[in-house]
């Protein structure tokens, strides 16, 4: 049996106690798998992924990510978990006052790597996302697609165990979308990173084995 990296048991998520967004859902995700979570707008896809990185504590039930019990965790202990996650947001969440290079370096700085290691790793990653020539630019000087590639490089920087992507291609053109999908697939296939993507549509051009969860009326169903 494959090692389970995400386990939810009877999980209920809510912003207000009496208005649950996800209700009594149980599911699990194996290590090294590529997972899509789909559902209509407002179904709770982003809420679910938020709970995976600890931004929303379960109201009821259990949620275990990489062995860390998020239903019991104190907020001050979340930083420990997040060092093992790579997160990609639809709105990129780059630090606009920092250069592209420094943004990519962020997880490495947090992990305490030396300046030299940070510099080398950042250089490689920017080459990987085809942004070597933009290292000293600032996020607001880049296009949306380029910004998401910076976010992608940042998410990959510290070789995370899990990549969580919330509509990573939602605002992007085809070229940038393809690049992002290729990078996510590459991380999954070459590094064995577990990838969890929240999206409206599963891209048809992907040739990869994936698991598919769908959210409907607050319940998470496993489709395939």
């Amino acid at each position: 049996m494959a090692n389970k990296v995400i386990v939810a048991e009877d999980l209920t998520l809510a912003y207000k106690k009496d208005e649950p967004v996800i209700k009594n859902s149980s599911f699990s995700i194996e290590s090294g798998s590529f997972v899509f979570i789909t559902g209509p707008s407002g179904s709770g896809k982003s809420t679910l992924i938020k709970s995976f990185y600890g931004a929303l504590k379960p109201l009821r039930g259990e949620l275990i990510i990489g062995g860390v019990e998020l239903h019991n965790i104190k907020k001050s202990k979340l930083s420990f978990l997040r060092k093992y996650l790579g997160i990609i947001f639809q709105d990129y969440k780059l630090i606009n006052e920092w250069s592209v290079k420094k943004n990519v370096m962020l997880p490495l700085l947090i992990a305490g790597y030396s300046k030299e290691v940070c510099e080398n790793q950042t250089k490689k990653l920017l080459k990987h996302v085809k942004l070597s020539n933009k290292a000293d630019k600032y996020p607001l000087e880049l296009s949306g697609g380029e910004q998401q590639r910076v976010a992608m490089a940042r998410a990959l920087a510290h070789n995370p165990v899990i990549i969580l992507a919330d509509e990573p291609t939602g605002n992007l053109d085809d070229y940038s979308s393809n690049l992002i999908w290729n990078l996510l697939v590459g991380a999954n296939e070459q590094l064995g990173t577990t990838v969890v993507v929240v999206t409206h549509h599963i891209p048809s051009q992907l040739h990869i084995n994936f698991k598919h969860f769908h959210i409907e009326d607050g319940t998470v169903y496993e489709i395939s």
Partner: peptide, 16 residues
């Protein structure tokens, strides 16, 4: 706030 929130998302400790 925004910058600090992003850093928090990537596990930066309070002092950082």
């Amino acid at each position: 706030k925004e910058r600090m929130y992003i850093m928090e998302l990537f596990g930066a400790p309070l002092w950082m």
